Amino acid sequence: MFNARAYSATSSTSPLASTTIARRDPTENDVQIEILFCGICHSDLHTVRNEWAAVMPTVYPCVPGHEIVGRVTKVGSAVTGFKPGDLAGVGCLVDSDGTCPACKEGLEQFCPGMTLTYNSPDKHTGGVTYGGYSDSIVVDQRFALHIPANLDLAAAAPLLCAGITTYSPMHHWGVGAGKKVGIVGLGGLGHMGVKFAHAMGAHTVVFTTSPSKVEDAIRLGADEVVISRDAAQMQKHANSFDFILDCVSADHDINAYIQLLGRDGNMTLVGAPEKPLSLSSFGLIFGRKSVSGSPIGGLKETQEMLDFCGEHNITSDVEVIAIQQVNEAYERLLKADVKYRFSIDMASLKS
C-alpha cells in the first residue's frame, strides 16, 4: 500500500477537503496512473451528498471522480497494453466479474458484479473504492483506456463519462448519415450529444428552453435549434425523427418529443429526473415508436468512442479549475453555471 493525496467528503453535509488515502501497490495485472485531470460529473455531487441513499448509500470518507485522465507511472509484470509514460484514462468502472454473459459480450456496464470507480466495495483493500479527486489511481489493465495523444487532456477527461454516456446509445441505435437526430437539453451531456451526432453525419436538431443557447448550439454542430416551449416550432418537426437523445434530468414532458419521432423511431433517456415521468402509450402505439434508457458503455465501446474522438478531434467544452475550487464548483453545478463541464487540474493538489 502507498499513500496518495486526495480530496474527500466525511459526511453528506461536509465540504470536500484535503486528505490522504491508501492505494494498493500494483499487482501483476495492474496499471498505476498519475492523475492529471478529473472531470466533475453531477453523479459526484449526488454521491457526496448521499442523495441516492435509497439505491446507492454513500460510504464515507468519499473520494469522488470517474472522468480520469493521466499518465502511466508503473505497470505489473503481466501488463501488455501499457507502459510507463503512456496516456491513460479511467471511467466509471474499475472491475467486473469477467464471466457473466454481459462481460463476455463486452457490456461490463451491465455486469451484476461490477465495481464502480468510487463508493463500491473494494476487494483489494476491504474498504470502498476511491475515485479520481486524487493524485493517483491503480486499476486492472482491462479497465484502463488509451487516450489519443492529439486531444487536450483537460477537455478529454469528461469523455470518460459524459462522452460514452451519449456516444453509446447513438452507436447502438445506428445514428449516422441520412438520419435525423434530436438532442434534448444543452448541458454537460447534451453538448457532447450534439458533437457526436454532427460528427456521425446526422442532421442534428437541438431542443432547448433557452433562446440564449441557440448560438452555442449552432457552434457545437447543430443544423437547427428548436425552442421547445414554442408549439409551432415543435409541430413543424412532428413524426420526422429517427432518434432523439433526451439529456434532461429535470421534470419535463417526454410525450411532446415522442410525437416528433417517425415510424420505428426511438428516444433514449440518459438524463435521470428525480420523479417518474408520465408516458402516454398512444404516442408509442401509433408509429411503433420506442423509449429506452442507456447508461455508460462497455470498455470496448468506450475505447472506440475515444478513438472516434481522436479521429474527429472531439472533446468536451470545459472550465479548468484547481481542486481547492471544487466546493464552489458544486454550488455552480447546481445552478447550471458552467459551459459545459468542470475539469480539475490535479497538479493543484500539490499546492
Rank of each mutant, 00 (worst) to 15 (best):
G174E: 04
G174I: 05
G174N: 01
V175H: 09
V175G: 09
G176R: 13
G176S: 10
A177Q: 12
A177I: 12
G178D: 08
G178T: 14
G178E: 14
K180F: 10
V181M: 12
V181T: 14
V181K: 07
G182D: 09
G182W: 10
G182V: 06
G182E: 13
I183G: 11
I183R: 06
I183N: 13
I183Y: 08
V184C: 12
G185W: 04
L186R: 07
L186N: 03
L186Y: 03
G187D: 12
G187Q: 02
G187T: 09
G187V: 01
L189F: 11
L189K: 02
H191I: 05
H191E: 09
M192T: 01
M192P: 00
G193H: 02
G193A: 02
G193N: 08
V194M: 08
V194Q: 08
V194L: 10
V194S: 00
F196K: 09
H198F: 07
H198A: 15
A199F: 12
A199W: 12
M200E: 03
G201H: 05
G201M: 10
G201Y: 10
G201N: 02
G201Q: 11
A202N: 14
H203S: 15
H203Y: 15
T204F: 01
V205Q: 03
V205M: 05
V205Y: 07
V206I: 10
F207M: 07
F207D: 00
F207H: 00
F207W: 02
T208S: 15
T208H: 09
T208L: 14
T209A: 15
S210C: 09
P211D: 05
P211I: 10
S212G: 08
V214K: 06
V214A: 11
E215M: 03
E215W: 03
D216I: 06
D216N: 03
I218V: 12
I218A: 06
I218Y: 13
R219Q: 06
G221D: 04
G221T: 03
A222N: 07
A222T: 06
D223Q: 14
V225Y: 01
V226H: 09
V226G: 10
V226L: 03
I227M: 14
I227P: 14
S228G: 12
S228C: 14
S228K: 10
S228P: 01
R229P: 01
R229L: 09
D230A: 07
A231L: 08
A231E: 04
A232Y: 00
A232F: 01
Q233W: 04
Q233K: 13
M234A: 10
M234P: 12
Q235K: 11
Q235R: 07
K236E: 04
A238K: 10
N239P: 00
N239H: 10
N239C: 08
N239D: 14
S240D: 13
S240W: 09
S240Y: 05
F241V: 14
F241H: 14
F241G: 14
F241T: 13
D242H: 10
D242S: 08
D242I: 01
F243V: 04
I244N: 15
L245C: 11
L245F: 13
D246L: 10
D246T: 02
D246R: 05
C247W: 07
C247N: 13
C247G: 08
V248D: 11
V248H: 10
V248Q: 11
S249V: 02
S249M: 08
S249W: 03
A250K: 04
A250G: 03
D251N: 00
